[in-house]
């Protein structure tokens, strides 16, 4: 069971208190009624599914109830950071590069 840091409660709480809520930083288009089919597809259906750093939404549903964002490494399952909804996407260059190197190592071993 993971421990997840809630940026609103400012403490680590067990995963049981949280619910995953999909990819982060996918904003609902302001003029959604008038966007093209392609734009709607990108907004609603297309997701990144990266090997490495994933930006995702979580909700502290059985705690403060707030939605927040997290950066999680999908290889190690480790949370790199969590931050409040509306805050900008943090740059996690170092971790991402490490993971890229790891992934390449994995490929060359095959």
């Amino acid at each position: 069971m993971l421990l997840i840091h809630c940026p609103y409660c400012e403490e680590k709480r067990p995963e049981l208190e949280f619910r995953h809520a999909g990819e982060a930083h996918v904003a609902r288009p302001a003029d959604i009624a008038n966007i093209s089919d392609a734009e709607f597809a990108h907004y609603f259906f297309y997701r990144d599914n990266p090997k490495g750093v994933a930006y995702e939404r979580w909700r502290h549903i059985h705690g403060c109830g707030r939605f927040f964002n997290a950066a999680r490494d999908t290889i190690s399952d480790k949370f790199l950071t969590t931050y409040k909804a509306g805050e900008p996407k943090p740059e996690l260059v170092e971790a991402a590069n490490e993971n890229k190197a790891e992934a390449q190592k994995g490929n060359s071993a095959k």
């Binding site: 619910r19 809520a21 939404r57 549903i61 109830g65 707030r66 939605f67 909804a85 509306g86």
Partner: peptide
């Protein structure tokens, strides 16, 4: 309620 909270907190704050 989860769906409503989601929109209220993140899309229509």
């Amino acid at each position: 309620l989860h769906h409503m909270e989601d929109y209220l907190q993140t899309e229509f704050p």
